[in-house]
Design a protein around this nucleic acid. Structure first.
Length: 522
RNA sequence: GGCGAAGUAGCUCAGCUGGUUAGAGCGGUGGAAUCAUAAUCCAUAGGUCGGGGGUUCAAGUCCCUCCUUCGCUACCA
């Protein structure tokens, strides 16, 4: 059995439809998962929705909907998004699942058994919108006015009984863990923020609520439901079978990496490991906080900003693989990035259509026309051929895997496109269309060289553009068994050339994109 | 206020522990080619590497300071 690899997205709060940030996270996580599969790992990718909390209950009530039924609908949008964006998740975990409740309760009891939960009173300015308490001096608004949180949301003085988690107890253990595992939080800029936060001292965390009942009931404490983050984070466990400690869970926990947005690093890098320490469970190996995808004008994306683009609409308009490629290629993973329709069109046309798609098209077309569709046989390679093999081979078996391994997704794509550029330079320099008249044997060697390189490049980029890559490999007759990083580096060409495989009339892989009319006018 | 990140060619950005004429992609310009999705290839455009000061034989690359943007965090009065 191959080595397990467990990766998760954050568990989205489906208070609205998924926006481009959700799509970005799912796509990035999926590309990493697909890469690991191509490296031979036994992968689990878990995603899902975090459906509890007061906000959800209120939104449903305002819409005069039954809460669960409302949650069903909202969750389904996220599940649909995963389907449409070709996310290869193994499980879509909902916090409203019965098994998830059982998992949350099991985690709770484990923390309780460790003496880390106690009942106390909590009072302060509570913001329903933020689902958070604020200190007296954080609140603004004079006598008789509506008090506002630092985020500008309305707050009310609230007193409630609450269970507390002894977070303070874990300060030193956390710092030790951060020190001993320098890659636990990435990128470094996020790690520094967390370090400073923890070094500044940790207060115990309120982990239950009594003001509403839409959540996982606290065991043995009627009227209390768990703080949403407790059960949301538990999804990483329940998604692979917890509380059943056998089977999937024992094989895949701890997770290799949690992919999350930079805004929720603290929950994943402080609270979550503390919960796990308390429950006696091993910690995930890494938490990676990616950046935000900003609109062209620099405004933060979000439903409240009113400029949230529908990722599914963009994917439909420009193509799922094109959309995936754009996001992962354009944005340095871990940093913020921006998008625009112009940028999508420009990037995809330049690299996918003109460089790679056209490379495949011109190569396959020549084989189709000049070799009657049969793969040319090889009678020795020239230095130029070997130089290209070396360059592409290095990209495919060293640079690109190394970048993926390091979650440097844009660098992986960059290394790939550079190898594609080299192929185009090679085909122009060798000019097989001229060799056709002077030296058909040499022409065949050139086309064979390109054929091999194109197949390797298709496999290497397939984590990012899986459908297109597979389609090309299929048309090229590349057996499924060699469509991974090891296989495609093996000697599959001669057997294929000697088989009765014959190319069909080549068809363009990536149509050139055009801006939509509105966008072009604007 | 504290801490941190960033400010490099028109645009988007690479530049690790300081060291040949500061790089890439896109865009622009000039060629070449015509197999291919009017796609490709080659060459090139000369940016005081945010401002100022300093260390050094040598600094985008270290130190100080100022300006701008952003993130985390805090709030002394």
């Amino acid at each position: 059995m191959s080595e397990p690899y467990y990766i998760t997205t954050a568990i989205a709060y489906p208070n609205g439809r998924p926006h481009i940030g959700h799509a970005y996270e799912a796509i990035a996580t999926d590309a990493i998962a697909r890469f690991q599969r191509l490296m031979g790992r036994d992968v689990r990718l878990i995603t899902g929705t975090d459906e509890h909390g007061l906000k959800m209950a209120q939104t449903a009530r305002n819409a005069r909907r039954e809460t669960l039924e409302f949650a069903d609908e909202m969750s389904s949008y996220f599940k649909d998004m995963c389907g449409k964006l070709n996310i290869s998740h193994d499980n879509f975990m909902r916090t409203t699942d019965a098994q998830h409740h059982a998992a949350s309760i099991a985690l709770w009891k484990a923390m309780e058994a460790n003496g880390d939960l106690y009942l106390d009173r909590y009072e302060g300015w509570y913001s329903v919108r933020d689902e958070a308490y604020y200190a007296d001096d954080e609140v603004t608004g004079g006598e008789g006015e509506q008090k506002l949180s630092p985020q500008g949301t309305p707050v009310e003085w609230t007193v409630e009984e609450s269970w507390f988690f002894r977070l303070s107890k874990y300060q030193d253990q956390l710092l030790t863990h951060f020190r001993d595992n320098p890659d636990f939080i990435r990128p470094d800029s996020r790690k520094n923020e967390v370090l400073r936060f923890v070094e500044g001292g940790l207060r115990d965390l309120s982990v239950s609520r009594t003001s509403f009942d839409w959540g996982v009931p606290v065991p043995g404490s009627p009227g209390h439901v768990m703080y949403v983050w407790v059960d949301a984070l538990t999804t990483y466990l329940s998604g692979i079978g917890y509380p059943d400690a056998e089977g999937e869970f024992s094989r895949f926990w701890p997770a290799n990496v949690h992919i999350i947005g930079k805004d929720i690093v603290r929950f994943h890098a402080v609270y979550w490991p503390a919960f796990l320490m308390s429950a006696g469970l091993p910690l995930p190996k890494q938490v990676f906080g990616h950046g935000f995808i900003l609109a062209r004008d620099g405004a933060k994306m979000g439903k409240s900003a009113g400029n949230a683009a529908d990722p599914l609409e963009l994917a439909e308009r420009y193509g799922v693989d094109q959309f995936r490629y754009f996001l992962l290629r354009e944005v340095s993973f871990g940093q913020d990035g921006s998008w625009s329709e112009e940028a999508i069109v420009a990037r995809c046309n330049a690299e996918l259509a003109n460089s790679f798609g056209n490379l495949a098209q011109r190569t396959l077309s020549q084989i189709f026309k000049n070799c009657d569709g049969y793969l040319p046989t090889i009678n020795g390679y020239s230095d130029e051929d070997n130089a290209l093999f070396e360059l592409v081979g290095k990209a495919v078996s060293e640079t690109i895997p190394a970048a993926f391994n390091d979650l440097a997704l844009s660098q992986a794509a960059e290394a790939w496109i550079n190898a594609v550029f080299a192929c185009n330079a090679y085909i122009d320099a060798q000019a097989p269309w001229a060799l056709k008249k002077t030296d058909t044997e040499r022409m065949e060697a050139v086309l064979a060289t390109l054929y091999i390189c194109i197949a390797q490049l298709a496999v290497a980029i397939s984590p990012i553009i899986p459908t297109s890559a597979d389609l090309l490999l299929e048309r090229m007759g590349i057996p499924n068994t060699v469509r991974d990083f090891n296989g495609i580096a093996s000697h599959w060409y001669s057997p294929l050339a000697e088989s009765d495989f014959r190319l069909e009339q080549p068809v363009g892989l990536f149509p050139r994109l055009e801006l939509t009319v509105e966008e072009a006018v604007a």
